[in-house]
């Protein structure tokens, strides 16, 4: 059903810490690996060993430069489905393949109903959905629904693949409906925010801003200049200056 639930019992989602993310792409790689070998159809690649390689990814890492005067810093920015409360991708779906679950708020695609029209990807302002060129259906982050409720996996693996693999602990998984959960506390403590709030999608996933840092001292001189010359070098410098 493409009608959005008025309320979900849980609000499962991710917190992504832009302060600690090192941009290693391990989360994207593990996401790809898990989801290409999971219960669903593989995440296909076209021309995988050629020059024009292209593939379906549920998580991609963009890198942005944030410049303020002479100071600039590099912020790595992982982006996957935000599992919005007001998900526009769900309501536009004509077949009922797109859905938001009432029990945990996860936004999913029922691949057996998807006709591959692509309208949901147009409706998503974030680019969280990608058409699989081989399967002919829309793919998106499932929040590793096949891991988090698994009874076979060891306890510590029952979290999304991207969170499990992050070497910098920049990704956190939890229930935002519980104000005492780790993710809720993180968002409260660090000022977690929504992406594109003006699009009125009410994303569940939150981003933590990079922490304030002491600005790097502006270099007093360029590398070409150096400390004042002394002795022989001072004489040579002057002698060369005096040449016509």
């Amino acid at each position: 059903m493409t009608a959005l639930p008025a309320h979900t019992e849980k609000k499962l989602g991710l917190v992504i810490d832009l302060d600690t993310c090192v941009g290693c792409h391990a989360c994207a790689v593990n996401c790809k690996e898990w989801n290409t070998g999971g219960d669903l159809a593989p995440l296909s690649d076209t021309d995988p060993y050629g020059a024009d390689v292209s593939g379906t990814w549920l998580n991609r890492i963009h890198s942005f430069e944030v410049a303020d005067g002479d100071d600039a810093r590099l912020v790595h920015f992982p982006k996957s489905c935000l599992h919005c409360d007001d998900a526009p991708c769900v309501t536009v779906c004509p077949t009922g393949a797109s859905l938001k679950r009432t029990e945990d708020g996860i936004v999913l695609v029922d691949e057996d109903r998807c006709m591959g029209c692509g309208l949901c990807a147009w409706a998503c302002p974030y680019g969280a959905r990608e058409m699989d060129a081989v399967a002919g259906v829309m793919k998106k982050c499932t929040l590793c629904v096949d891991r988090i409720y698994s009874e076979e996996l060891p306890e510590e693996d029952r979290i999304p693949a991207c969170v499990r693999t992050c070497p910098a602990s920049a990704r956190h998984f939890g229930d935002f409906a519980d104000p005492e959960s780790e993710v809720s506390l993180l968002v409260a403590a660090r000022g977690g925010y929504d992406l594109m709030p003006e699009q009125a999608t009410k994303p569940v996933n939150k981003y933590l801003p990079p922490r304030e840092r002491t600005a790097l001292p502006t270099p007093a001189r360029h590398a070409d200049d150096g400390p004042p010359l002394k002795g022989f070098w001072k004489w040579l410098d002057g002698a060369l200056e005096r040449l016509p």
Binding site: L18, H25, A28, D52, V53, S54, G55, T56, W57, R60, I61, H62, S63, F64, E65, V66, A67, D68, G69, D71, L74, V75, F77, Y126, E130, M131, A133, Y193, D194, L195, M196, Y207, P209, P210
Partner: peptide, 22 residues
């Protein structure tokens, strides 16, 4: 889109992948 505005300016430094995607 990134929430990184603040006082500074934000611009893309690097795309996720070197080739085009869907």
């Amino acid at each position: 889109a990134t929430g990184l505005g603040g006082p500074g300016t934000v611009s893309l430094f690097e795309r996720p992948h070197v080739t085009e995607n869907w």
